[in-house]
Design a binder for these strands. Structure first.
Lengths: 227, 227
DNA sequence: CGGGGGCTTGAGGCCACTCAACGATAGTGG
DNA sequence: CCACTATCGTTGAGTGGCCTCAAGCCCCCG
């Protein structure tokens, strides 16, 4: 269930640059935009992967579920991130809009067709997959061996790199999402944030507990043991 | 520090098939063999990745360390597995021989050169990376959300698929390795195996606690909640 | 203004960890 | 070949970090 948006009749100004789809050698491929309302599923695990997506505005979570409801979020996709790219034919995660989200999408088939003849596009597919792999490798270390404080510190550092525009970091996701990303409970995440606040490492704007100001990045980094 | 073995003067009968290096279209690339004694490092994290490896005999562990010594094993590499393939120039894990291990190795540079012109080799690089990514994604769910019994059950099922020749599974790795792979302690792994033994799900040969006989695969599978 | 979701905080419990002892196993050298 | 020793594996007792359950506050939104 999602809201469909008619594709822009004028050619959209931006495309999936990172995949090399905009290189002069390639004819442009039709890009459609969709809006998914907050909480709506974009695709489900094990569904056929017919499209690749790029976040234009908003944020997306990718997760796996166990049969009893335990959830592991594998990644958050923020503005400009590409997601849903699978090499096999089916999605490995369920993807959901965290907030109202606009995505650009491209048919997987046409992408593979271009990759066939364009070595640069093929290389970009590989480098994207490699980047996803690195993230997963680092996250395994976090999930297998880090303490709750270290996990939350690592999360804040990652989000700081990825979404700070000004000096205030506006998290799109709730505590439960953070917990399911870090392999913790939402209460443990909340307690860790409170401890970091008490240590003077971070502050809240007061408008929202999701708007966080990092006051001491070096002390925060020292709380997350590096690999 | 490693033992060098003179490469076979007669062309070796097997090569890195999976990468497509043996396809008729490619001239054979020189393959050297090395033996690493049990416990010896094959390469270190952050070292330049000049070679790709394939296990001929033995077993290898790939791991990351935190500065205080906590260890997370990301993967075990068993006979015929290829490892050490990085897209960037440096290794993301440390690799160590678990037991005396013979590897075939190939210069990364020559591999990339071939991939440049041979689309099949390039596709194989991508599909190998994708396979590694899937394993990491599944392992994140295990590390973030599964109980100790579920983790050990999942480990046994994985190893059963990968190394059972006869009906007895001979694990090359010690309890500590299993623990660091599953994000547990060695005592917890031992207790979980004892519980599974008590439940009649598995047995030991008596010759070694590393030789395990799976007596009831379906009950074992039911103990590991599926994603 | 009432309802509900999100967040924090406290109290108590449990699962996995820590520390320790002991037996079994395998590798080593005489 | 066997004694010696280090390593590996199991098991028990106790601890602790994170989870569970619960209450209360705040804010948003209808």
């Amino acid at each position: 269930m999602f809201a469909r948006v008619s594709s822009n009749p004028i050619a959209p100004p931006t495309t999936l640059n990172e995949l090399g789809m905009e290189s002069a050698s390639n004819p442009k491929i039709a890009l459609n935009e969709f809006i998914y309302k907050r909480g709506i599923e974009i695709y489900g695990e094990k569904e056929p992967a017919d499209y690749v997506y790029q976040v234009k505005t908003g944020a997306v979570r990718s997760y796996k579920l166990l049969s009893d409801g335990r959830r592991q979020i594998g990644a958050f996709h923020l503005v400009s991130d590409i997601f849903g790219l699978e090499n096999g034919g089916t999605h490995r995660f369920t993807a959901e809009a965290i907030v109202d989200t606009t995505v650009r999408l491209i048919k997987r088939q046409s992408l593979e067709l271009v990759a066939e003849s364009d070595a640069m596009v093929a290389r970009n597919l590989l480098s994207m997959t490699t980047r996803n792999l690195r993230h997963a490798e680092d996250h395994m270390l976090l999930l297998g061996r880090k303490t709750s404080i270290e996990r939350v510190a690592a999360f804040l550092i990652e989000m700081d790199k990825r979404l700070t525009t000004a000096d205030v970091m506006a998290l799109p996701m709730c505590r439960r999402d953070i917990a399911d990303y870090l392999g913790l409970t939402l209460e443990t995440v909340s307690r860790a944030l409170s401890r970091l606040h008490g240590l003077g490492v971070l502050g809240f704007t007061g408008h929202s507990q999701r708007q966080i100001v990092l006051l001491d990045r070096s002390r925060l980094a020292s709380l997350d043991l590096q690999n």
